[in-house]
Write a protein that binds this DNA or RNA. Sequence first.
DNA 1: CAAACAATTGACGTTTAGTCAATTTTTTTC
DNA 2: GAAAAAAATTGACTAAACGTCAATTGTTTG
Lengths: 243, 243
Amino acid sequence: MAVSERKKREYDQREGLIIDTARKLLLDRGYLDLNMDQIAEVTEYSKGTIYQHFSCKEEILVAMLSESADKAGQFLLRGSNLKGKPRERMAAMALGYDLFVCLNPDHFKAKLLVQNESIMRKASPTFQKKMDASNQQNMHLVAGVLRDAVAEGHVELKKGITPEEVAFGLWTGALGAYVLMSSEVNLHALGITDPRKAVWENMHALLDGFGWRPLSSELDYEQTRIRILKEVFPQEAAQVGRA
Amino acid sequence: MAVSERKKREYDQREGLIIDTARKLLLDRGYLDLNMDQIAEVTEYSKGTIYQHFSCKEEILVAMLSESADKAGQFLLRGSNLKGKPRERMAAMALGYDLFVCLNPDHFKAKLLVQNESIMRKASPTFQKKMDASNQQNMHLVAGVLRDAVAEGHVELKKGITPEEVAFGLWTGALGAYVLMSSEVNLHALGITDPRKAVWENMHALLDGFGWRPLSSELDYEQTRIRILKEVFPQEAAQVGRA
DNA sequence: CAAACAATTGACGTTTAGTCAATTTTTTTC
DNA sequence: GAAAAAAATTGACTAAACGTCAATTGTTTG
């Protein structure tokens, strides 16, 4: 059945086109002006065909986010493969995520919307499960590096604290920061001139606080940062013009 | 002009009614099912009158958030007035904010939406300025307690790190956590059984990481927590059933 | 009390999500 | 290869909701 295989490919390709178009329109016009007629017009398919792929507007958003969440996972994975101490690998994951966000400005725009339960609930359970699985995978990846550190004796977690809870702390710190950066909050007026740098510093303070060695007083993580960009994300760093 | 004063009072009162109604509908039905006709019906005013107060649906959301943001500021302020060391006062602010979020479940629902630039931009600049001012005030409050700590010699900030950046770290950690808690993410499946506790622990790790004394190894902050609830938020703690 | 002014209303125009009968295209059958 | 069956595509249509504004109701003033 080579024919039906081709059909399937064409179908998937069109789904990608719809998502990409929606992504572009979301960035250009914003959520409130994102509408199905326009998506239909730009993709040059009829509205009915769009609805063949997605049951509602919100489902396109969720699919968009699901796609970019997978991409984000790739950046985390690449970071975790840095040659070095677990804490350096963790730093590489954070830096990778930062690069991902820079390269995919739509990601947080969609995330803010889909985080809203009323929008998320309208999408099909299939997509919801996908998102959950994606979160779980990333959590597992981060907690895994931490477990490596514990195994190698670089850090002892206080009684009652799990690797997942530490991962949660890293997650929430990054999430909150990128939420603020992708929204209309005037960080500059609040005295935050370089939020990316602040996120990096705060992550290291958090890890120092857990006693994860080498502490930032024992290792120059600025050197690590440069090494990460060079060894793991050379192309992406160039793309966003990072030293 | 006693008459016009009364008029003004009635007008303000109605504005409050509209906001409260919208808040209730947002919690009950969610954003997508929140509509102006229903707000008009429930408040028993006509749609035209609602539009006398707010230029669009999104402006009601922003007003809702602005109101609860002020309330949140009160909790922070009360926390900052705890008798004790600066770091304890900081902990009291965090705990106060946590209680506020528990008591105002609509706050983060609205915040997630208003954080979206397309929704925020539709509201009038007046409200946008209000939100900025509110954020600035809170940032100032948090940074102020940190400055006290620096003045009293409890912490030395590394060169190049400002109190605002540390405040930013506390802010983003809390923001990200409450975003996740107020959304559909299944934290339990991710191994986070008590997110509030995790937020508390992570905050202390962050402050430990900055070297803010007394470190959590030097002082039993669980005792501080109990004291804060007793001395600063006795009523609120009882309301949410916190020990 | 009447005229001017202000506040309130809800019917109406417009936009857009989502549906579905009609049409076109593709596949199967003989 | 033609005809019939199945599948895919379309866009006119319905319903819902936003936001407007002319008409109406209520209030103040001279």
